[in-house]
């Protein structure tokens, strides 16, 4: 589904993403781990076209989307839930949801379908998003991404700032979405343990480079990697 080949991103003289290659199939989750500044967010931002790639390619179902505008990439079925959740606090919950599916017109999911996943949102549908708690914002943000019925879901640190109970709930939900909707999920996380618990594949980035690309169990049992990069 999503194929990244030798992707490289530079910010001026700083190389943020350095020849990264990875693949995510439909219905599977690839976790991208690593410390602050390892290039995880830059990788996602390059995939969705928010920052230009210096070299390499990104393909969706074989189509090269590397040099496309963000809006076009989104129209190829990529949904990116940005770090810090990115809900538009000036709009209501319902407006945020509707916004996610406008380009899909009639084929977009109805807010009702999202409320079935997140009943908490339905209670607050006509409130401005600024009134939501951190966990609710995360739900809204993921729910909003689903409205467009994407095929590829890019999640940037969904656990950031959430209580452990909520983190577990969100992770379980992501697994369920991948299984039931056949989504290809690229999950960027600093919380390596939770991410690996649901992932089919784990990738560790350091200074923009892939330093490990293994089964989750193998990663979790590698003493050296755990100490050097994963912090558990």
């Amino acid at each position: 589904m999503l194929v990244v080949e030798e992707l490289t991103t530079d910010y001026g003289a700083v190389r943020a993403v350095d020849h990264v290659s990875l693949e995510v199939g439909a219905g599977s989750i690839t976790a991208v781990l690593g410390a602050n500044g390892a290039g995880k967010t830059s990788l996602l931002r390059t995939i969705t076209g928010l920052v230009p790639a210096t070299a390499g390619r990104v393909r969706i179902d074989g189509e090269n989307i590397t040099a496309m505008a963000v809006e076009e990439i989104v129209r190829r079925g990529v949904a990116h839930v940005p770090e810090g959740r990115g809900v538009i606090v000036e709009l209501t919950v319902e407006e945020n949801l509707r916004l996610g599916g406008l380009w899909r017109r009639a084929e977009a999911a109805r807010p009702k379908e999202i409320y079935a996943l997140f009943p908490r949102l339905e209670e607050r549908q006509s409130q401005p998003a600024s009134r939501l708690s951190g966990g609710e914002r995360q739900m809204l943000s993921i729910g909003r991404a689903l409205v467009a019925r994407p095929r590829v879901l890019l999640l940037d640190e969904p656990s950031l700032g959430l209580a452990p109970v909520l983190v577990a709930q969100i992770m379980a939900l992501v697994r369920r979405l991948a299984d039931t909707l056949g989504l290809a999920v690229l999950l960027v996380e600093q919380n390596a343990r939770s991410a690996l618990s649901i992932a089919n594949r784990g990738i560790v980035l350091d200074l923009g480079r892939v330093v490990a690309d293994q089964e989750p169990e193998a990663l979790a049992s590698d003493e050296r990697l755990r100490h050097a990069y994963l912090g558990f």
């Binding site: 928010l50 990116h80 940005p82 990115g86 916004l99 406008l102 380009w103 909003r144």
Partner: peptide
């Protein structure tokens, strides 16, 4: 709605397919 979203948060709006 798209105009308001683009005004408040252009980057998030783009990620949601708003031109």
């Amino acid at each position: 709605l798209q105009m308001r979203a683009a005004a408040f948060q252009p980057e998030v709006a783009r990620l949601l397919g708003v031109r």
